[in-house]
Design a protein around this nucleic acid. Structure first.
Lengths: 273, 273
DNA sequence: GACTAGCATTTCATATTATGCAATTTATTT
DNA sequence: AAATAAATTGCATAATATGAAATGCTAGTC
C-alpha cells in the first residue's frame, strides 16, 4: 500500500471500497450535472467527468428514466424533478431545519418582518424555508433561490461561519464576476478590487464580531436584510436566518428586530453558552 | 386490515431503454431510501426493493461514498448531505412559472378552454401567463391584470392557500369596498355584510375541501371560472391556474375540464399526497 | 462472561452486462 | 443544400456485477 503525500487534497478515491464501479462513475456524473448552471450538452458532461460520451449517454438514460435528470428532447440535460424530491426528503430529515422552520412564524410575528431560512448548497446559500410578513412582497425570491456570497447578508454569514474549503470555489467565481461590475462593492469595501483577500477577511471578522451580517438596499434595491447563523457543535453555520425589510432602521445593531433575530438563532444553536 | 411489507415498492419499468441495469436497480434503491421515514436497516431496504441484501449493501457503499447516503456506523442507512445538495441544486434551477407556462398550451388543448397563470402580487392575484383557446372568449383580461380576492375564483384560491398575513390587508380594503355594493356577494354569501369573518372562513374551508374554487357569471357577466393552486411543499399557493369559459357546465365538480385542471396542478405541486 | 441469534459485510467463482469502437441518426452550421 | 458536428444505437469482447456461502459484528440472554 503506497502512502500518498497529498493527504490535504480533498479528492476522494475514484472507487469506493466494496462499492460498484459503474455506480461510482455514474454518481460522479450526477454530481457534475448538479454542479452545472443549467442545461448542459452530453459532450460537456462527458468531458467534465473524463468519460466517453457513449458511457455518459447511457448513464443519463438511466437517470432520466429514474426522474433524477431531464432532457429537453435534444441532447441537453438537466437535473429532474426526482432530484428535487430526494433532496427535499433529505432536507426534511434534518431536525434543525424542521425545528427552525416550525418556529419561524413566531419570529415573523415578533418582528413583523419577512424571514427566511437558508442552507449551504452546491451553488451557495439556498432558501429552504420562507415565511412572509404582511408588508412587502418580493416576487423574485422563492424557495430554492440562491444568494451571492459577498453581496447578500445571508452569504456573508456563511462566508464567516463556514470552513474556507467550502466557500472558496464559489467565492472565486463570484469575484471574477464582480470585477466586471466593481460598483457593486465599492461603497462598502472601497479596496475590494485592489486587495480582495484583505477586504474579504475584514468582512468576515466584522461578521463574526457582530454575530450577524447586514446589507443595505444595494443588492435588492429598496430592501435591507440582516442575517445570523445557527451554529452546530463545531461552531460552523448549519443554516442562516435572514430578515428582509424595506425599513433600514430595522437592521441597526440595537434594533428590536435584530435583537429578536439573535435571540432566535442563539436558541437553536448547539452551544447555548 | 394487514399492511403489506412492500408498500414502498417503486412501480415503473424496471429497465430503461438504452440505460444501465445496475444503475436502474441502484436508483430504485435510492428512491426507496428517500421514501423511508428515517434510519433504515439494510435488510428492510433490500426487501423493499426486492433485491438480495448483498446487492443492496454494495449499492449503499457507493451511495455513501458519493455522499448521497449516510450510515450510523452500524447497519442503518439514511439519505446523506449530498442528496440534499443535489436536490437544492435542482430546486434552484426550477422556475415554476416557466415550467407551468410551458405546459399551459397542453392544458388548453385538453380542455378547450382559455387558461391563465397568476401569482400573488402586491395588489392581489396577478396574471403572469395566459393561453387563449380556439373558441375565443371576449374579455379585457391580460398580463398584469389583478383579480379581486373574494369575487374571483383565482382570488379565492390564494385566500385559501396563502398565509393570512399576506391577504388580510387587501382583504380588508376589499371588504370596505364591497360594503358599498353588497349585491356583489349577497347571492353567494347572504350574511357577508353582517358577519364577514365567518362567511370568509367558510369560503376558505370550502375551497380547501374541494381543492379548487369557482365563480359563476356574476363577476364578469356571462363568464365562469375555475381556479386551482399549484402548491409548494409548505402547502402554500405558489401560483394559481384559472380556466375561463362561457359555458357554466365546464366548471361543475365532475366536469372533464375541472378534472384536467386538478390533474394539471397536482402534477406541478411539490408534494403529492 | 460466554452463548446464541440475527444481522451486516466480505469472499470468490461464474456468467451477466457494461464497455468502447464504429456505424447511424439527428441537429447545426456554411 | 451540403457539410460538419453531435447525439444515439449495435455489437463483440472483456471487464465486473452478481449471489451463495463464509465470515465478522452487535445485541440480547442465561
Amino acid at each position: 500500500m503506497v502512502k500518498t503525500k497529498d493527504q490535504n487534497l480533498i479528492v476522494r478515491e475514484s472507487q469506493s471500497a466494496g462499492g460498484i464501479q459503474s455506480l461510482d462513475s455514474a454518481l460522479v456524473l450526477l454530481e457534475v450535472l448538479a454542479a452545472q448552471m443549467g442545461l448542459t450538452s452530453l459532450g460537456d458532461l462527458a468531458k467534465a467527468c473524463g468519460i466517453p460520451t457513449t458511457k455518459a449517454h447511457r448513464y443519463l438514460s438511466s437517470f432520466v428514466h429514474a426522474g433524477l435528470a431531464q432532457t429537453d428532447g435534444n441532447g441537453r440535460y438537466d437535473l429532474g424533478k426526482g432530484a428535487m424530491e430526494i433532496g427535499l426528503a433529505a432536507l426534511s430529515r434534518r431536525d434543525i431545519v424542521n425545528a427552525v422552520g416550525d418556529a419561524l412564524p413566531e419570529l415573523v410575528r415578533d418582528t413583523g418582518i419577512t424571514a427566511l431560512v437558508s442552507v449551504w448548497g452546491t451553488s451557495g446559500p439556498t432558501v429552504v424555508r420562507w415565511q412572509r410578513a404582511a408588508a412587502p412582497v418580493i416576487t423574485s425570491l422563492g424557495l430554492g433561490t440562491t444568494f451571492p456570497i459577498l453581496t447578500s447578508a445571508t452569504g456573508q454569514v456563511f462566508l464567516a461561519y463556514l470552513p474556507k474549503v467550502m466557500t472558496t470555489d464559489l467565492l472565486k467565481s463570484e469575484l471574477t464576476r464582480i470585477r466586471r461590475q466593481p460598483y457593486l462593492l465599492e461603497n462598502t469595501f472601497p479596496d475590494t478590487a485592489q486587495n480582495p483577500t484583505k477586504a474579504i477577511s475584514a468582512l468576515e471578522n466584522e461578521t463574526r464580531e457582530l454575530g450577524y451580517a447586514t446589507v443595505d438596499g444595494r443588492f435588492i434595491p429598496g430592501l435591507v436584510a440582516a442575517a445570523a447563523p445557527v451554529l452546530d457543535w463545531q461552531n460552523e453555520a448549519e443554516l442562516a436566518i435572514t430578515l428582509i425589510s424595506s425599513d433600514p432602521s430595522a437592521i441597526l445593531p440595537d434594533a428590536m428586530q435584530v435583537q429578536k433575530l439573535l435571540e432566535f438563532t442563539r436558541e437553536f444553536s448547539a452551544s447555548r453558552g
